[in-house]
Design a protein around this nucleic acid. Structure first.
Lengths: 185, 185
DNA sequence: CTATTCCTTTGACATAAATCAAAAACCAAC
DNA sequence: GTTGGTTTTTGATTTATGTCAAAGGAATAG
């Protein structure tokens, strides 16, 4: 899904407003496994995935990667706390496939928020959607057994299992690759 | 913290705007252990805790309560998905102490969002803050050991351990009361 | 088509946390 | 203070999941 359609689906904009807003975004193709943010950096950009797939992940002291989130087509992608609070990122952000991605700087986004009431509305709607999804995941991890968690995953990210390594999914669900492998059987 | 101060701390409002906004809120005192929303109901109100303490909790099939969130003074309190998406709530919402609480209906809140750009901004800021906090908890539960999780808890909700039963805190952290008791030792 | 690398599954064993049960500590009302 | 009820701690045992190690499959590049 492209950015323009996405914006239209959530807020009302006339042609001039839309093209003004789009002019602040930068569209670019990234190769597979491109790092967009390193841990410790302050994230200055918000991304929108038009096509492809990304993930955020955390590196534990023992060197193990833990996937925190997957970002598919038609979703905003960010190290949320770092971008919004301008604090050092706890996560890495990377592409998992060759991806078409829009980006916008914090400064420009804030400018759009104050310029257009509808953009502010968009920001609110998108934040709430992310919040709902994170709560949903939290519930899965906190209340449910390993099996149910895998079910949740299939609903939230259909067909993901064919696109990313099993280990990424396992760590996203808070279990080891071996456990997930046994569950699927 | 009262609502008026809270609003001022996040957005700019003149006296007229402020009093108009406040007029949509309803201030009330609730006794300890008052249920504000039952599981299965669609939540029509958003709450703001001026004073006191609330929590949301989930009831598992085996009848065990799992605390999902605590809401202290100066925080908005809601069954987020139910209120914002107008879907049946997965949680119960209750007061844990005698509390002074403001409430506003979804209809009135939406009205304020469209009437005032700043209210839309407030909605965005509050949503992002909630998102950040939920992500923080998710990290604690997903990445950290039981001990570290308890540490996170003390940071996020200082002095909570003197105000609510241990079992509530344990389930919030995704562990049993016995485990938490052993950890604290 | 073959070789190298990466990814997934399987097995044996270790461990953190859950469960069940009871005792101890704490608190409130009388 | 004594009583009754609630909350917290402690102990013994079970269980789910993690860890380590190796084998089996699948994918990619040359």
């Amino acid at each position: 899904m492209n950015l323009s359609d996405f914006l239209h689906s959530l807020i009302n904009l006339n042609t001039d407003e839309l093209s003004d807003i789009l002019s602040y975004f930068d569209k670019k193709v990234y190769e597979k496994n491109t790092i967009l943010i390193n841990e410790g950096e302050i994230s200055h950009n918000l991304y929108f995935v038009e096509n492809g797939m990304g993930r955020s992940y955390y590196l534990k002291k023992d060197g193990k990667e833990v996937t925190q989130w997957f970002f598919g087509s038609g979703k905003f992608m960010a190290s949320a706390d770092s971008f919004f609070q301008q604090t050092p990122s706890l996560y890495y952000l990377e592409t998992l496939e060759k991806s078409v991605i829009y980006s916008i700087s914090k400064v420009n986004l804030d400018h759009l928020f104050s310029k257009y009431h509808q953009m502010e509305q968009l920001g609110r709607l998108v934040s709430i959607e992310m919040l709902t999804k994170v709560v949903h995941k939290l519930n899965a991890i906190q209340f449910q057994t390993a099996k149910e968690r895998y079910q949740y995953m299939l609903e939230e990210f259909p067909n993901i299992s064919t696109r990313v390594p099993l280990g990424y999914i396992a760590s996203y669900l808070g279990m080891t690759q071996e456990t997930l492998s046994r569950i699927r059987r």
